[in-house]
């Protein structure tokens, strides 16, 4: 009797303390959310601002307008619509090719045993440690030889040709699938190709989604390669480079609000995609990379 009473007393005291702690936590979280969301809100508000110029001395614009969005798609100098299309095309193709490559390579390294597998793994590790854009001048020369200079095809190749190197995460995932599955299928007379396509891949939805997500976001937001590869060919810019060029010295003040509109347009789909798919993202990283 006394025992339970004591513990219930303890519990109410404990509960009160816990509530107090929780309130502190709520306050901290709320403050943090405000800090984190503030720039995003500012972005959206700026994109609806009627006044020109880089910024105003007040937070809310005096004149609200949708004109920036209309200007965005009707500008002669910065063909945003075209850039958006370029970005979409490049991202979709790179995503498909890269995902395929990554799955193929990581499956081979994870579940198939062959001579020089270790060598390949080590070489992959070493290659992955060169800074990604270190050799872009050389890659550009190669593209020139193939007649692909300043083309979208060159971008797709750049983003997906080296995709095989990103096998670690997916390999980590494949490692966790029980080997007994393969054994059973082999006894049933399935070839390794059939096992890959018909047994393992259907089981790998999380890692496929993760791979597709990251390989899509990469080209969608890349600036470095486009900026070197496209040079003056503004028709073939992707949104990242295009938006960056809007903030050049000459045009910044005139186009800042349009830039914000463009940023909102490019951010919306990718944000939704990411928020919806975050579960897969976390599973991918924690399941693969973290376990190593």
């Amino acid at each position: 009797m006394t025992n339970t009473q004591q513990s219930s007393n303890m519990q109410t005291g404990y509960a009160a303390r816990r509530r107090a702690i929780n309130i502190v936590v709520y306050v901290i979280l709320a403050v943090m959310v405000v800090i984190w969301i503030f720039p995003i809100i500012w972005l959206i508000i700026q994109s609806l601002r009627g006044e020109e110029g880089i910024s105003t001395s007040y937070f809310f614009p005096h004149e609200w307008t949708f004109n920036n969005y209309i200007r965005l798609f009707n500008d002669d100098r910065f063909p945003y619509g075209r850039w958006l299309l370029n970005t979409l095309v490049v991202a979709v193709f790179s995503c498909i090719i890269s995902t395929l490559f990554i799955l193929m390579v990581s499956y081979a390294f994870s579940r198939l045993r062959f001579k020089s597998r270790k060598t390949f793994l080590n070489l992959g590790l070493i290659l992955g440690m060169f800074p990604g854009f270190m050799s872009m001048a050389a890659t550009y020369s190669i593209m020139e030889l193939f007649g692909l200079k300043q083309s979208l095809v060159a971008l797709v190749i750049v983003y997906s040709a080296g995709a095989g190197l990103g096998y670690q995460v997916a390999k980590g995932f494949f490692d966790t699938i029980p080997r007994s599955l393969d054994e059973a299928a082999k006894i049933d007379g399935a070839t390794r190709s059939q096992i890959f396509w018909q047994i393992i891949l259907p089981l790998s939805k999380p890692i496929i989604v993760y791979t597709a997500l990251t390989t899509f976001i990469g080209p969608w937001t890349d600036y470095i390669f486009v900026s070197y590869f496209m040079k003056d060919n503004s028709d073939n810019y992707t949104v990242a480079l295009g938006l960056y060029s809007m903030l050049g010295n000459q045009t910044m003040s005139e186009y800042f609000t349009v830039f914000c509109a463009g940023a909102v347009v490019i951010a919306i789909p990718i944000t939704i995609l990411f928020v919806v798919m975050q579960r897969f993202y976390v599973e991918g990283v924690t399941g693969g990379a973290v376990k190593g």
Partner: peptide, 29 residues
């Protein structure tokens, strides 16, 4: 190539492209 040597099938294309567009530029650089 669909069974015992499936790894060759899986790896050939990625490795060739890797050689051409990653390894070659790195050596060149």
């Amino acid at each position: 190539f669909l069974d015992e040597r499936f790894h060759v099938t899986l790896l050939t294309l990625p490795v060739v492209l890797l050689m051409l567009f990653t390894v070659l530029p790195i050596i060149f650089t």
